[in-house]
């Protein structure tokens, strides 16, 4: 295998996971929290694909593709919720709305 070993990819993935987790824990905007959740899921994907390479087993890649679909679905639902909430309180300042669940 050319380039760095699988372990290097895993460290990257771990850092990405921690970054995403931190994002969920410290940000107040639900939009950014959703983005941070995507980071966490992608970190999982990176680990899956790195391990798939290590074991030369395509199962991990299949898993990653499935995760991608799930991540997309979560985004759709999350965005739908945010839109519904913003609709619900058109008269309110959206800052207050985002603060609600931030």
């Amino acid at each position: 295998m050319l380039g760095p070993t699988v372990a290097a990819y895993l460290v990257l993935s771990a850092i990405l996971f921690a970054t995403g987790a931190a994002g969920v824990l410290i940000r107040r905007s639900p939009l950014i929290v959703l983005l941070a959740l995507e980071l966490m899921l992608n970190a999982g994907n990176l680990a899956l694909i790195a391990f798939a390479r290590q074991h030369a087993d395509s199962g991990g890649q299949v898993f990653a593709l499935a995760v991608m679909v799930v991540a997309a679905t979560e985004v759709v639902v999350g965005l739908g919720l945010i839109v519904a909430m913003s609709r619900k309180k058109v008269e309110l300042d959206v800052d207050a709305l985002t603060e609600l669940e931030g």
Binding site: A21, V24, L25, I26, R28, D93, A96, L97, E99, L100, E101, G102
Partner: peptide, 19 residues
């Protein structure tokens, strides 16, 4: 909005406890 501000901490605390 004041109550909402109290709320804003909550969710993160939930996730924080999980973490």
């Amino acid at each position: 909005s004041r109550v909402a501000a109290t709320q804003s901490g909550l969710l993160r605390v939930y996730a924080l406890v999980v973490a």
